[in-house]
Design a protein around this nucleic acid. Structure first.
Lengths: 343, 343
DNA sequence: GGCCCGCGCTGAGACGTTTTAATGAACGCC
DNA sequence: GGCGTTCATTAAAACGTCTCAGCGCGGGCC
C-alpha cells in the first residue's frame, strides 16, 4: 500500500499538499497531536502511511537545536563487560526514543578525541563515556561545549556531574570475606596493574575484609600483580604461585579471565581446586559457570549499569531544571560455585 | 586558547565575519581547501581554531541530502562474534570519517523494525545488517527507501546487493576433516537448531568431508540437535552422549560455548579428552585456549568481516557508478589445540 | 588598447522542519 | 448586529550549511 515508493524521500510539504493542509499542521500532528482536530489528524496520519513519510531527523535537529541521539564512548567494545553495558544503553535509549552513536576508543586517546569530535559534529544530545585514563580534564573540554556527560564505570570527580559505577571496593570486600569464611587465612590477590582504578579498589576492599576478620592485611593478603588481565597472564600467575614456597589457601583474581587461566595452570600442576586452593574471580562472565571447575565470581549488574546511565543522561538533557546530579554506586553480587566450595 | 568558549555553538557565519570573508569561503575551506588562496585559508583555519568552531552535521546533512553516518544493526550485541564484527566496523568507519549508529535487535523483529525506522529518520548513508531470520523481503523495504544495505554474516539473495559472510560450509568441512584425520570414524555433530543457517551449513560441510573420506555421511556423522547454543546446552548434550550406547570417536560442536559445556560434562563423567573423545568447537572465542583442556576450534576473521563490510558499503555509497556488487565469502581457519591432539 | 580568461571570492537561495504570530470561522453575549 | 473569545489552521521566518551563478581584477594575447 506504500503508493509513494516511487520517489525517494517524502517531505512534510508533500504530505501537507496531499492531505489538503499546511505543513505546519502536519508538524503539529507529529509533535502535538492534541492540538489538531480529530478529523484532520486522522486524515494526515492516513496520508503519512500512504506516502511512507519519515521525518528528516537532521532538519528537525537543525531547527530544534538538539538531536535525539546520544554518544557512547567505550574503552573496549570487545570486552564483555562493556558489551553488556552497551546492550543496556541501547535498550534504554531505544525505549526513550533515542539513537546511539557508537565510539570505541580502544584505549587510544587520539581515537577517543576523534570520536568526541564526531559526536560534537553530530550534535549528540548527551554523552555516555567510560573514560580512558583518570584525567578528568579531558572531559571538561566536552562539557564546555555544552554537551552533558554521564560517566560510566567511573566516579565523577565533581558534584555537578552524574556518574554510574559499580562498587569495586564492596566487590573486593565480598570476595575476600567469602574466601576467609571458608577458613582461608592466607589469600593471594592476583591483579592487573594498580594503575587501573578497578584493580586498586578491589584490592582495598579485600584488604579491608582481612582486617575486619582480625587479620593483618599486609601478611594475610599477598598481592600478585601481572601485566595483563587475560587468561595467559592468569596461567603465568599460576606458575609463579606453584613455584613459590607455599601455596596460599585461597586466590582472588581481579577478573574472570585471570581466574580461568590460573585455574587451568593450577589443575595442570596437580593442584586441586577447591581442595588445595579456593578460587574466586570477578565479572561472572558467561563461561565461568562452564569451566572445568565452575568458578565462583562477583557479578556486576552491567546491563542495569547501562540502562541507569542512559536514564540519568536523558533526564539531565530533557529536564535540566529539575534534574539533580547523582553519583550512583551499584552493588555487585557474590556468586558461589564449586571453586570455593568447602568439602 | 579557545577564546570563543563563552557562547555555545559557533556558526560558519561568525567564523566568516571574524576572518573577514564570506560564509561561502569558510565552507570552501572546509570542503574544498584547494579552491581557496593559501593566505585566506590559513587565516580562516586560524579563526576556526580560535573560536572552537565545529561543523553542524545536521545542517550539512540537510543540505547535502545525505549524512556521514552508517547504521549497524546486530542480532545480539552481547555475542562475542558480533562484538568483534562491531569493533571492525567502528574501526573502518572511523578511518573513513563516518560515525556508526548502533542498533541491537536482540532477535526481536519489532525492535529491529524500530531501529531501522530510527536509521531512516537519521538518514544514514548506508546500513550494515546481520538479518534476523531468513526472510529477505524485510530488507527490501529498507532498500526501497533508497538506503544501501550490505549484509553481514549472511549471503545476499540477489546479485545487486553486497554481502560479507564467513564460509560456514568450509568451516564445517575443515573441522570434520581434521577430526577424521585424527583417526575418528564416528563423529557427533552437536548443533543448535537447523533453522539457523550457520548450523545447517556447518553440518553440510562436515557431511561432505565424511563422504570425501569415503564414509557414508549418514552413519559416520550423528547429528545431535540441542535447543540453544550455550554452555548449558552443551552439558546436556554431554549427558545425552554419555548415556548413549557408545561414545563417538570425536565431537564437533557448532559453537565454542556448546563445546565448553560439553567438555565439562564429559570430564565430570570421567571421559577423557582427547584420550577417549576428540573435541572441536567453532568461533575460537577467547576462553577456548584457557579451558581445562584447551579447545581446538574454527576461527572466523570477525574483525576483518566488519572492516570489509564497512569498506564495501561506503564504496557503494560514495561511488555508486563504479561500484560493483560483491558477495564476499571469507575463509575460516583451523586452530588445533589439546582437545584434538593424537596421543 | 581592447578582449578574453581564469582565479578568488561573494551573495543568494535551498534543504525540511518547527515555531510564532496572524488569520478566519464559529459562537455566545450584551 | 457588533464585539470579544475560543479554537483550528495558516503563512512566514528561522536553524547552519552548501552550491552555483556571477563579479571584479589582474595578466596575457592579438
Amino acid at each position: 500500500m506504500t503508493t509513494g515508493s516511487t520517489a525517494g524521500p517524502v517531505s512534510i510539504k508533500e504530505v501537507a499538499a496531499r492531505a489538503g493542509v499546511s505543513p505546519g499542521t502536519v508538524s503539529n500532528v507529529l509533535n502535538r497531536p492534541h492540538k489538531v482536530a480529530d478529523e484532520t489528524r486522522s486524515r494526515v496520519e492516513q496520508v503519512i502511511r500512504e506516502l511512507g513519510f519519515v521525518r528528516h531527523g537532521s532538519a528537525s535537529t537543525l531547527r530544534a537545536g538538539h538531536s535525539r541521539t546520544i554518544g557512547l564512548s567505550l574503552i573496549d567494545i570487545a570486552n564483555p563487560f562493556f558489551t553488556d553495558v552497551a546492550a543496556g544503553v541501547e535498550d534504554m535509549a531505544g525505549e526513550l526514543g533515542y539513537a546511539v552513536l557508537l565510539g570505541n576508543s580502544a584505549g587510544d586517546h587520539a581515537k577517543e578525541d576523534r570520536n568526541l569530535r564526531v559526536f560534537a559534529e553530530q550534535r549528540v544530545r548527551g554523552l555516555l563515556i567510560t573514560p580512558s585514563g583518570d584525567d578528568p580534564r579531558r572531559l571538561d573540554v566536552v562539557r564546555e561545549r555544552g554537551i552533558r556527560v554521564v560517566l560510566v564505570d567511573h566516579r565523577a570527580h565533581r558534584p555537578d556531574q552524574c556518574s554510574v559505577a559499580v562498587n569495586d571496593f564492596a566487590g573486593g570486600h565480598m570476595a575476600a570475606e567469602h574466601l576467609l569464611a571458608t577458613g582461608a587465612t592466607r589469600v593471594a590477590y592476583v591483579t592487573g596493574p594498580f594503575t587501573v582504578r578497578q584493580c586498586r579498589d578491589r584490592g582495598s576492599g579485600a584488604a579491608h575484609a582481612a582486617s575486619e576478620a582480625g587479620l593483618d592485611p599486609g601478611s594475610a593478603i599477598e598481592v600478585v600483580e601481572v601485566p595483563a588481565m587475560n587468561a595467559r597472564a592468569g596461567q603465568q600467575a599460576a606458575e609463579r604461585l606453584v613455584s613459590g614456597r607455599r601455596l596460599p589457601d585461597a586466590i582472588f583474581c581481579a577478573n574472570d579471565l585471570l581466574a580461568l587461566g590460573l585455574l587451568r595452570g593450577l589443575l595442570q600442576s596437580g593442584v586441586r581446586v577447591p581442595g588445595d586452593v579456593a578460587l574466586i574471580g570477578y565479572d561472572d562472565i558467561d563461561f565461568s559457570a562452564a569451566s572445568a571447575v565452575s568458578l565462583s565470581s562477583i557479578r556486576q549488574p552491567t546491563h542495569k549499569l547501562g540502562r541507569l546511565a542512559t536514564e540519568l543522561l536523558i533526564d539531565e538533557c530533557e529536564n535540566p531544571q529539575t534534574h539533580t546530579h547523582r553519583q550512583i554506586l551499584v552493588q555487585p553480587e557474590l556468586i558461589t560455585r564449586e571453586s570455593t566450595r568447602t568439602p
